[in-house]
Amino acid sequence: MKILDRYIGFEFLKAFLLALVGLTIVFLALQVLDTQKIDSNEPKELLRWHYVYSLPQIAVFVTPPAMMFSVCFVVAQFAMARELVAIYSAGTSFYRAVIAIYVVASLVSVGTIVFQDQIVTPSNRQAQKYLAQYKKNSKATDVVWQRNLRGKEGYYFIYFFDREKNRIIGGFHYMQVDENDRPVRMIQSLSAHYNEDGTWTLKVVKDVHLDKNLNVIKTDIKESLVMDFPEQLEFFSNPKVNPGELSLSELQEEIEFREQYGFSTVQYRVHFHRSLSFPFMVLIVAVVGSVAGSMGSLRSGGPLIRSLLLSTATIFFYQLTFEIGENLGMAGILPPAVAGWGPTAIFAGIGLWLIWKRGR
């Protein structure tokens, strides 16, 4: 059986890598066409780096369709070449024959979880950074205005951040907390200016110190105050509010913070559940593809034709269900868990139905 496993596994792996590269190129080309519409005087090199850092996200996104296509195609080829008949004649069941495919799919599924959290998240931040630099002279769509941010040692409120002058105007508030998330200091200022040495100069400042019982023990009113916050300038100029730029642990922290202060958590919850459910799609479509590829009439060439048609339909249906689920979740029509896990549950249902139909 080791020879059979190596043979099927190797054939599948070749098809999967080819499909993954092909679909990644297609979706990258679509992104290139979309970003070329941006009118900017900045160097094109910024846009090229944006494409480079976008590759991990695109590769993860097309992994389930690539898995579906490759599994369905390889199994259909075995059926067309009568290799499955020979395997059955040797007393090997269908699911035992394709176990190598399921093992590889499981490894890819687990790898997707780690890759998505450790590679895709930071690369998304870099991709958005280069895109923002390229759009510098175009119409701003990511203005930092009236933002509540959670830092390493406390919480910030920013009324408006002026990127050109690296200053905050209209109001800048900071609440420092202890290890128990209890306020120990509150600073209110009219404005704040970033200095070259990494410090901030606050203007028209009210500095309030609190004890462990939240009683005011000291209040200072100052014309200016120099503060050295633990966060870098980029934390304020480009806060990580896009869920796609947050890891699973950061998403949980953001959700807890927003719940604590009464802010909406819908988009973060939807993305959190979607990120958790997404890797399971890899294994599910492997099962769906293997069963679908083995079904049909051998004389008519049905398995190959059916697998290609089903794979193409799956790619569009896969993207459509994820987009609909996310939009309905963001709009509050569906609970975040349903919006995030719904598409995966649909494909799981399709897989169970195909397994039942094949066993009849």
Rank of each mutant, 00 (worst) to 15 (best):
V144L: 03
L23M: 11
P122D: 07
Q146D: 15
Q146W: 14
E245I: 06
G351N: 08
F322M: 10
G325R: 00
R258V: 01
E164A: 13
T344W: 00
I221A: 11
S106R: 03
L298R: 13
L47V: 06
N213I: 09
C72I: 10
F115T: 01
N195M: 14
K212N: 15
Q260Y: 03
I8Q: 02
E231M: 12
S249D: 10
N238Y: 13
K37E: 14
S247M: 05
M295A: 02
S189I: 14
L46M: 07
E11R: 05
K357N: 08
D197P: 06
H273L: 01
L283P: 04
S93Y: 04
F278T: 02
T63P: 07
G342V: 00
G332D: 00
Q188S: 15
P303Q: 00
M295Q: 08
E234F: 03
V338M: 06
V338Y: 03
I221H: 05
E323A: 15
A79H: 08
P183D: 09
W353R: 10
V266M: 08
V110N: 12
A59F: 07
I305A: 10
N137C: 00
W353K: 04
R274M: 15
A127R: 01
L225C: 04
S290C: 11
F257N: 01
G289R: 07
A90Q: 09
G22I: 08
E231F: 09
M295K: 11
F229A: 00
E250Y: 01
R185S: 00
I315G: 09
A348S: 10
F160H: 14
A90W: 00
K14L: 01
Y130L: 02
A90G: 06
T219S: 13
W353M: 10
N195C: 06
R360T: 06
A105T: 02
T112H: 11
F317G: 15
R274Y: 15
E179G: 08
L298K: 13
Q267R: 09
S54H: 10
A19D: 11
F278S: 04
Q267F: 13
E42A: 07
G22S: 14
I113E: 06
F78E: 12
A127W: 05
Y88Q: 02
T314S: 15
E259F: 12
H209A: 11
L13G: 00
S89C: 02
N137H: 12
M295I: 09
Y318N: 05
N166C: 08
P336N: 01
E11P: 04
A29R: 03
S294M: 05
